[in-house]
Simulated assay, not measured.
Amino acid sequence: MYDRLKGQVILLKNPDRTEIKEVLDNAKTIAVIGLSPNPMRTSYMVSKAMQDAGYRIIPVNPLADSILGEKSYATLQDIPESVDIVNVFRRSEFLPDIAEDFLKLDAPVFWTQLNVVDEAVFNRLSEAGYTVIMDRCIKVEHAILK
């Protein structure tokens, strides 16, 4: 994979499809960082599809009160319940700070959408024992694996 911002090749070892299916089969709640209230945005469409598939979506967007009929939270730490997957729709340069917040949450899976990649974050979270999936669309993976 090629990081357009840094102009370098990045090697990530995402879980294989069997492991990704297991992640999706076992998850119930997905916190979505950067979920837009605009139905024309990819984050909204993907999250709506996952909600329609039976997942509880928890928006993380400090500028919205609610999205997709769910209360929106300003940060991951504000979420008062457990989360199975943190799905990130922010640019790659925000991943180090998001990873710091993620480490305080105690969620088992850190997932970033297409073109959202940071090799150092991937390695740090993987080495800490978390499942990390980067540069993959959760909606596409769900559709392929259901």
Score class of each variant (00 low, 15 high):
48 K>T: 04
10 I>E: 13
55 Y>K: 12
131 T>H: 00
74 A>F: 07
33 I>S: 04
88 V>A: 08
33 I>Q: 06
121 V>G: 02
115 N>C: 04
15 P>A: 07
13 K>S: 11
109 V>H: 07
13 K>Q: 14
33 I>T: 06
145 L>M: 05
115 N>F: 14
34 G>Y: 02
19 E>L: 11
83 V>M: 02
78 D>I: 02
74 A>T: 11
48 K>A: 11
37 P>S: 02
43 S>K: 01
98 I>N: 00
123 N>D: 13
131 T>E: 00
3 D>A: 12
133 I>M: 05
29 T>C: 12
76 L>Q: 00
124 R>H: 12
145 L>N: 10
6 K>Q: 11
139 K>Q: 11
21 K>A: 13
45 M>P: 02
23 V>K: 11
139 K>T: 09
80 P>F: 10
115 N>A: 14
6 K>P: 04
80 P>A: 06
133 I>R: 00
28 K>R: 14
46 V>P: 00
70 E>T: 09
38 N>C: 07
108 P>Q: 03
40 M>R: 14
44 Y>V: 07
86 V>M: 02
58 I>W: 03
96 P>A: 09
85 I>E: 01
103 L>W: 04
19 E>A: 15
8 Q>M: 09
9 V>E: 14
76 L>N: 08
25 D>R: 13
136 R>N: 07
12 L>Q: 13
108 P>M: 10
118 D>E: 09
137 C>S: 07
77 Q>M: 11
134 M>E: 05
30 I>C: 04
6 K>W: 06
68 L>W: 09
99 A>E: 02
51 Q>W: 09
1 M>H: 11
72 S>L: 07
98 I>F: 11
19 E>W: 03
30 I>L: 03
97 D>G: 10
130 Y>G: 05
62 P>E: 08
22 E>N: 14
33 I>H: 05
76 L>R: 01
30 I>K: 07
73 Y>P: 10
122 F>C: 10
131 T>K: 10
128 A>T: 00
129 G>T: 07
121 V>L: 07
67 I>S: 05
64 A>E: 09
142 H>M: 12
107 A>S: 14
27 A>V: 02
9 V>A: 10
109 V>F: 06
61 N>P: 06
108 P>F: 05
143 A>D: 15
48 K>Q: 14
19 E>N: 08
138 I>D: 08
67 I>G: 01
107 A>C: 15
76 L>K: 00
40 M>E: 12
63 L>T: 12
64 A>N: 03
9 V>F: 15
71 K>I: 14
101 D>V: 02
107 A>Y: 05
100 E>F: 03
91 R>E: 12
84 D>R: 13
134 M>R: 09
58 I>M: 13
37 P>V: 02
4 R>L: 12
66 S>R: 14
39 P>A: 12
